[in-house]
Design a protein around this nucleic acid. Structure first.
Lengths: 336, 336
DNA sequence: ATTAAAAATGTAAACGTTAACATTTGTGTG
DNA sequence: CACACAAATGTTAACGTTTACATTTTTAAT
């Protein structure tokens, strides 16, 4: 593989000139530029980015740490990061954590090891580096969705309390009074906030909370299936279900159908996320749209800000959400 | 940030000993090892991976190039690559191509630039580097799903012809004689092969092909919706639809339901991929399982083989597929 | 033609490792 | 207690860039 020295030799110039031709073309005479480019072409030279990184002390790469890619919310976020990264000539490395602290920390070593300039995290855990950070300066890490207020670092998330409260408020506007809830992973701050929002929404409407119709597990469709099963078996009365994800909601609808319950005639189901499948559900799913790609995009922008001014980037961005009415929710028939 | 020199100084040894303590611990006396590790701990030293890469001429990273991440087949493949990569201490970089040749080639520069040791591709296009490769030696690139027989490079894919032929054969066994087909992107070799398989399956059963009930576009659910609409409007007779992806199938079922057609009573629908949502469809989707994570895993293994013996890795792996019977297909009622 | 300033190019150090090779220290044997 | 040999450690040259600084060439003004 040809290196910069080979090009310099063939073009009859110094390596500095070759480097300049590539990085600061305006500083080199057109005639020289031409010679150099011909040599580059001839030897099909490609800059060794590793050497470049080492010298520049900058990798032009970020790592995005996520528990897995099966979830389309997660995939969307990664895609969002990639979009903005690419626009800015930055490469994206993928770090799968499986929800394990150890793997998350291992991924951070890439930024400690200068292989990446920063990290974007969507995970249950918080990198130890942030927790042990005594420098007083924020690290180049952006936390998404999950957050602890005390943490010194840029973050982007949704207003989870309001998201769930609005879900309830919408169902209440359809006269529902007995609203069940299926949460995602309760270990997540995000999930706890949504539960708070759920209770808040109920109280805002002057309704009491029936703890027996609050179920949950994680965000997968299987959870929707199992939790709904449990809900039905509980014998408690409920006419609507708020689900913390569309996957859960889809699982719920599936199980209700198997139990001979009609959605939305018998039970209204409301999801969150607005995944691509939501609108093609049977029935099409009413949901609160949470664009995960936007989270990724904003997180990446925040990281870009960080390089310009670490302090200025140390802030929280709260993204908008939006209720999308489809066919899985309906006015409660009187008498129910 | 502390470097190896700082550690050497603090521990009172040479930098070589520090490096050895990290890479070849058995070669250093326990007492020395202890001193070094204490120094590392104290200064919270982390190896600069960029410098390490430069010196070793190895990045311990691969890049996986895909059109996007919205598709769960694609996400599964990436996840598969990551699994095997992580087991082997290799990092994964993400390259989104948007189906553009230029972006694909740009991503290849990472391996040309030594920032990645190899590339795994799932895309419409083939990297120019492979096409222009006159070296006679295969490059560290693994092509997945798409393939051209002439190409000199490792590849992993499904037996697409057989996949579609079996889909047809299964429907024929349920007495269907008028089978429609909704393809994905016809620009893909994979899609063309599946179409061939579809025709082959029909001919094997002694049936003729009705070109008027072959539709398609891409692999998204929207295609299923639109193509099914067109199929219905065509007025042609068909009692079953073979879809090139589960997303298409889900879209088809959705549209059939809207048109008042029952699945599977009126029309049988068969998908491909076996995505997570398939079994929770309404009705649960009969499909041919194509595990994309396996494709990713095998592709990564092939790349690992490449480093051991480039020639030996230059082969094609064909992964198994499996028909999964659920509720979206049924015996054709006599008289239809 | 001379000269000052600007433009273009060159020289060489630095980025932080790894590993080949050289040297020192330790161990066991006759 | 030499001696051979093994084990442990040290020295130093890469790896391929970028960039501060030094030097040369060009340009324009007198």
């Amino acid at each position: 593989m040809a290196n910069i020295k080979d090009i310099a030799e063939l073009a009859g110039v110094s390596i500095a000139t070759v480097s300049r031709t590539l990085r600061e073309p305006h500083k080199v005479k057109p005639a020289t530029s031409k010679k150099v480019n011909e040599a580059i072409e001839k030897l099909s030279y490609k800059t060794n980015l590793v050497a470049s990184s080492l010298r520049k002390q900058k990798a032009d790469a970020v790592i995005v740490a996520v528990p897995d890619l099966h979830n389309s919310f997660v995939a969307g976020l990664v895609q969002g990061v990639e979009n903005v990264a690419r626009e800015n000539g930055i490469k994206v490395m993928l770090g799968v954590t499986e929800g394990k602290q150890e793997l998350l920390d291992r991924h951070y070593e890439m930024v400690a090891g200068k292989q990446a300039d920063g990290m974007i995290v969507l995970d249950v855990n918080t990198p130890s580096a942030i927790i042990n950070n005594t420098s007083g300066k924020p690290l180049p890490i952006v936390l998404t969705c999950e957050y602890e207020a005390i943490l010194l670092c840029p973050r982007v998330r949704f207003d989870n309390i309001e998201v769930a409260a609005e879900a309830v408020s919408y169902l209440v506007s359809l006269d529902h009074k007995n609203v069940a809830y299926i949460s995602g992973s309760r270990t997540l701050r995000m999930s706890r906030d949504r539960q708070s929002g759920f209770r808040l929404g109920l109280r805002r409407a002057g309704l009491t909370v029936n703890e027996n119709i609050i179920a949950g597990g994680d965000y997968r469709i299987e959870t929707g299936v199992e939790a709904t099963q449990a809900l039905i078996e509980s014998g408690e009365k409920f006419t609507a279900i708020v689900c913390e994800s569309d996957e859960i909601a889809l699982g719920a609808i599936h199980t209700l159908a198997e139990a001979g319950l009609q959605v939305p005639e018998d039970i209204s189901v409301l999801g969150m996320d607005n995944i691509r499948f939501a609108q093609y559900g049977n029935p099409p799913l009413t949901t609160i749209a949470l664009k995960s790609s936007q989270v990724g995009e904003q997180a990446m922008r925040l990281l870009l800000d960080y390089y310009l001014d670490a302090e200025a980037a140390n802030r929280e961005i709260i993204l908008p959400h939006q209720l999308i009415e489809r066919k899985s929710t309906a006015q409660l028939l009187s008498g129910k």
